[in-house]
């Protein structure tokens, strides 16, 4: 029984981080219909900000988190202005964004590898290797802090979307872009801000990732499929769905890791992706496709 609790606790702690990684991706897809394959590579960018902050200046990654978020959000604004804004009018927009973001991912990876080499890194503040014990269940402090910070950020995002005027505009644009425009929403501005928030969340997630996992520039490929499976299971564009999916799959993955070995735990995400697409393509909280 203690083993089961242990597995669930570890799964939930990681689930929070995955949820944060996925929610930015989901927000960007919901508002902009951009399948952002570059999202994980930008998370990597945030991880490097936190890593160098710690290595060079001894800054705690949790303190570096807002800095990483702001730097990445600014990157997001730049990408949006340079690339996505002008392509938004194209008829093949959604398809094109897959190639565009793939290219961005390659460029970010190449840039990071050139600058920082492909060495494995990990930020190691004291708590990253420490743990709490409750009875015989141990909770690694690093994962616990990362999970809690993630949850707090997601809650803040949810409150912002639910109650702020701009949040209304974002939700409206997600549900019906044309209608939002007719209600007086400047949808281009909504696109820009959502993109910046989404990429900013990637930066924040990166700061957390930097002490939870060891990382190197090309590691983002592993996360592409993991994050896509969260977004698909949750229902494309549903942030709540993505968060629920992240927790469910992380706990499942922890069980798979426990019973079949750690190597197999990632398989959980890939299998989930297949099964969801076969059985319930609209995901947990998604709309049924209109063409069905």
């Amino acid at each position: 029984m203690a083993d089961i609790i242990q597995i669930v606790v570890l799964g939930l702690a990681l689930g929070g981080v995955y949820a944060l990684m996925g929610s930015g991706l989901s927000l960007v897809f919901g508002v902009m219909r951009i399948v952002n394959l570059a999202h994980p590579s930008l998370i990597m960018g945030g991880a490097y900000v936190a890593y160098w902050g710690f290595r060079l200046y001894g800054v705690d990654p949790l303190i570096a988190l807002p800095v990483a978020a702001i730097i990445l959000a600014a990157t997001g604004v730049l990408l949006y202005k340079l690339i996505f804004e002008r392509e938004a009018k194209s008829a093949k927009y959604s398809e094109m964004t897959v190639l565009l973001t793939f290219a961005i991912a390659m460029i970010v990876e190449g840039g990071l590898a050139t600058a920082f080499t492909n060495t494995q890194r990990v930020t190691s503040p004291g708590y990253a290797t420490d743990a709490f014990f409750i009875g015989s269940v141990f909770i690694p402090k690093g994962q616990l802090y990362a999970g809690m910070v993630s949850l707090a950020l997601i809650a803040a995002l949810a409150l912002f979307l639910k109650y702020s005027r701009f949040g209304y505009a974002i939700r409206a644009t997600t549900q019906n872009r044309e209608a939002a425009e007719l209600m007086g929403v400047n949808v281009n501005m909504v696109g820009l801000v959502s993109f910046a928030i989404g990429i900013g969340l990637a930066g924040a997630a990166g700061a957390l990732v930097s002490f939870v996992f060891s990382f190197f520039p090309s590691k983002h490929w592993e996360w592409v499929a993991v994050l896509m499976s969260l977004v698909v299971l949750g229902g494309m564009g549903s942030i709540l769905g993505t968060v629920v999916a992240a927790y469910v799959l992380s706990v499942l993955a922890a069980f798979v890791g426990y019973f079949f070995g750690a190597t197999w735990s990632v398989l959980t995400f890939y299998l989930a992706l297949f099964v969801v697409l076969l059985v319930r393509p609209q995901g947990l909280f998604g709309e049924k496709p209109e063409m069905a």
């Binding site: 019906n176 209608a179 939002a180 007086g184």
Partner: peptide, 26 residues
């Protein structure tokens, strides 16, 4: 100048009240 298109431009997953509020967004 307000426009109501054929598709009615509603937000399907917002409540009726929220839809009305969106009408006053500007």
């Amino acid at each position: 100048i307000c426009f109501v298109p054929q598709e009615r431009a509603l937000f399907p997953k917002m409540t009726v009240r929220e839809n009305l509020r969106m009408g006053g967004f500007s």
